[in-house]
Amino acid sequence: MRIVVVVKHVPDIQAERTLTPDGRMDRDQGDGTLNELDENAVEAALTLAQEADGGEVIAVTVGPPDAVDAVRRALQMGADEAVHVLDDAIAGSDALGTAAVLAAAVRRLGADVPVDLVLAGMAALDGLTSLVPAALAAELDLPALTLATSVEVDAAAGTVSVRRELDHADEVLRATLPALVSVSDRANEPRYPNFAGIMAARKKPVTVWTLADLGVDAATVGAAGARTRVLAAAPRPPRTDRVLVQDSGDAGVALAAWLVENKLA
């Protein structure tokens, strides 16, 4: 079982995050980290590889030099190899450009030895578009089973099944491998890399590919190829006239009056 897990390096959501004047994520503030929701995907990949007895997990990321930290974290968790697609022309890509580059990397990996499963997190905590998993599946012409809260591979049947919880319904979906699965944060509890894992990761290979290595036309990705362009970006004004009271027995009455006065109730 050969599993590719796609991961993203994002600004730490606990830190103050800002946009540049042209609407890109400001990635120069340090504090980057493996997108938390991708840890669930790495965990799912490692568990499935273990169950498959002889599985292999390859972590792939696309991004600037710092982005290598995302795949390093995946290696520390237990992934076997990593790929970092690094090219100046990628800067400013939208989710669809990113999906196209990831697809090229997965195809390249699959040219050597076929890839059975592509795993992704449900969203990246910076852009939160959730577009990449389904776009990547469409690019690769794979069935997409998204938002999984549990994943099961039936090796004998060559199928993968997922359970998922949507707003209006719960579902079980199944597809024949190869397939793409995105997992939600309810899928598992990601392991924390231990000392041995951190040491072992130092010896694991990180392959760097450029767009040329992947045969991707630079004009189709990056800011030039982006299908959307940010016209304006601004921080929302801080909330003003804020009230903070300590209840001394009548806070409920006071709150009721405030809501009525502000035509909220």
């Binding site: 578009t129 776009a135 997409a144 707003d167």
Partner: peptide, 23 residues
């Protein structure tokens, strides 16, 4: 802008070359 519909939007982006804005 439900999670299911983002999958629809992503597929339309790839099959029809559409640009997508979510949320």
């Amino acid at each position: 802008s439900t999670f299911e519909n983002r999958d629809v939007a992503a597929r339309l982006a790839v099959t029809l070359g559409a640009g997508v804005v979510t949320d």
